[in-house]
Simulated assay, not measured.
Amino acid sequence: MQAVIAVLPGDGIGPEVVAEGVKVLQAVAARFGHTFTLREGLIGGCAIDATGEPLPAETVALCRASDAILLGAVGGPKWDDPQARVRPEQGLLGIRKALGLFANLRPVTVHPRLIGASPLRPERLQGVDLIVVRELTGGIYFGEKRRERGPDGEWASDLCLYTEAEVVRVVRVAGQLARRRRGKLTLVDKANVLETSRLWRSITTRLVREEFADLEFETMLVDACAMHLIRRPTDFDVIVTENMFGDILTDEASMLAGSMGMLPSASLAEGRLGLYEPIHGSAPDIAGQGKANPLATILSVAMLLRHSLDLPEEAACVEAAVATVIDRGIVTADIATPGQVIATTTAVGDAVAAVIAG
């Protein structure tokens, strides 16, 4: 296979973890006889420094001309002023909107060797295997924002807006995914308070009845879900929810796996185009020190191979290599057990690539 992959290293630890993801892509290409053409672009703070904008038009064009996108992370203290005209996060929101990346898939599994890295009791983590499907281009993050001064002082508002079409298309992705997994779909909302959540619930309930009647289906309020993710995480299979709820719940769920450094994600458009990134941020406090865990990025590469390039065997090979490296104890500090030798970012990537190469 020949494929063009856009590589957006971003800020902070982004370039470090993306370098290990690229290393793994090259190992896969060599083992399976593929040709991956990698083309680098700017996004986030580094793009602001170079061009004045967090998402240059050249980056959007590069991504549109590619089969898939690998992203590191954006942001850092240098660009943290919330009053600034341009901010790194605008690049992230902008690329999602520009490419129509409406469905964000965030799988959460727990490697047996890493159970001790989680703050939860071990018995609650055995068999955790869930995936959150988060709507990514609508809701409060993209709604109209206002901030003004009135007779009672300053006031602000953020509009949370969803259309039926936006809900239907992401629920269809979640339903099809649940059908390929264990057949259970959980809608998370706040329908006792929010009108947008009541829209989500009515549309999802109807769609499940009409198209996914074979699935086990439940609805759950977001606050209850936040509790049950910790109390009984093995009960979940596929969770579908709106943009902000999905953002918060998946950060919480990262503690099941022991570290944000273990969780990959895929942001999918209609068709096969997708953007793949770890769920963690740019972690500027450890940038350049070789401490960043590259496994979430490497597992994002596996998702890229599976969803955008339709290479399931290669994806499984990467996932198996990650499991092997963890079993061998070649891990960064965030998932190391007391007394364990700590590996660098590069050493972990080298180890995964070596396993793939055989």
Rank of each mutant, 00 (worst) to 15 (best):
L114S: 08
P107V: 03
E123F: 04
E144A: 14
V171R: 02
A84Q: 09
V110N: 04
V110D: 04
K97Q: 15
W79I: 06
A73Y: 05
E166Q: 15
P88R: 01
E148C: 10
L99Q: 02
E89I: 14
G94V: 11
K78F: 04
A65K: 10
P122N: 11
C160N: 15
I69Y: 00
I131L: 15
N104I: 09
T163C: 05
Y141W: 12
E164C: 03
T163D: 00
P82Y: 04
W79L: 05
C160Y: 04
Q83N: 12
L71F: 13
K97G: 04
V86P: 02
G153D: 08
W155C: 09
L114H: 05
D67T: 01
A61N: 14
F102P: 00
S66G: 06
V128C: 08
P88T: 04
K78N: 07
P82G: 03
A68T: 02
P122Q: 09
A117Y: 09
L62T: 08
A117K: 12
L62D: 03
G75N: 00
E148I: 14
G127V: 13
V167A: 04
D81L: 04
S157N: 06
I115G: 07
L101M: 08
E154A: 13
W79C: 05
A156Y: 02
P122R: 14
R169L: 03
L99T: 00
L71M: 15
V171S: 03
S118I: 09
T109E: 08
K97D: 12
G138W: 08
I95R: 06
C63Y: 04
G150T: 12
K78I: 01
Q90F: 08
V86K: 15
L114E: 02
P88C: 02
L120W: 12
D81G: 03
R106M: 03
L125I: 09
H111M: 13
L99P: 00
V74M: 10
R85Q: 11
R85P: 07
D158E: 15
I115A: 09
V132P: 03
D158I: 05
G150I: 08
R106D: 00
D81C: 05
P107R: 07
V128W: 11
D129N: 13
V108S: 06
P119F: 07
A65I: 03
V86Y: 14
G143P: 03
K78V: 08
L70I: 05
V110P: 10
I131A: 11
N104P: 07
R106E: 04
D81R: 01
D80A: 15
W79H: 14
